[in-house]
Computed example of a mutant assay.
Amino acid sequence: MKPLTPKEQKVVDEFESARPGLGAIAENNIRHNDKTGWAEIIADTPESELIVREGFSSNSFMYKRIG
Rank of each mutant, 00 (worst) to 15 (best):
K10M: 06
K10Q: 14
K10N: 14
K10F: 02
K10C: 09
K10S: 12
V11Y: 11
V11Q: 04
V11F: 13
V12T: 09
V12Y: 10
V12G: 04
V12R: 12
V12A: 05
V12L: 02
V12M: 10
V12E: 00
V12I: 11
D13V: 08
D13P: 14
D13H: 05
D13T: 01
E14Q: 13
E14F: 05
E14L: 03
E14T: 07
E14I: 06
F15W: 12
F15R: 11
F15Y: 15
F15Q: 10
F15T: 04
F15P: 07
E16T: 00
E16M: 03
E16H: 06
E16Q: 03
E16W: 06
E16V: 11
E16D: 15
S17Q: 15
A18K: 10
A18P: 01
A18F: 12
A18N: 02
A18Y: 11
A18C: 04
R19C: 13
R19E: 13
R19Q: 12
R19F: 14
R19V: 06
R19T: 15
R19S: 10
P20F: 04
P20G: 11
P20I: 12
P20M: 05
P20D: 08
G21S: 01
G21Q: 01
G21W: 02
G21F: 01
L22M: 07
G23R: 03
G23E: 03
G23K: 00
G23Y: 05
A24C: 01
A24F: 03
A24G: 09
A24T: 06
I25Q: 00
I25Y: 08
I25A: 08
I25N: 08
I25L: 13
A26G: 00
A26F: 01
A26V: 06
A26M: 15
A26E: 04
E27H: 02
E27P: 11
E27C: 03
E27N: 03
E27I: 08
N28D: 15
N28R: 15
N28P: 14
N28C: 08
N29H: 13
N29D: 12
I30N: 03
I30S: 01
I30V: 04
I30L: 00
I30K: 05
R31F: 13
R31H: 11
R31T: 12
R31E: 12
R31G: 06
H32T: 11
H32S: 07
H32G: 08
H32L: 15
N33F: 11
N33I: 02
D34A: 14
D34T: 13
D34E: 13
K35V: 10
K35Q: 08
K35D: 14
K35E: 14
T36K: 01
T36L: 03
T36G: 05
T36F: 11
G37H: 08
G37P: 01
W38A: 13
W38D: 10
W38V: 10
W38F: 14
A39G: 02
A39F: 02
E40H: 01
E40R: 07
E40D: 08
E40S: 11
E40N: 15
E40K: 05
E40C: 00
I41N: 09
I41H: 06
I41Q: 08
I42V: 09
I42K: 10
I42L: 01
A43F: 05
A43C: 00
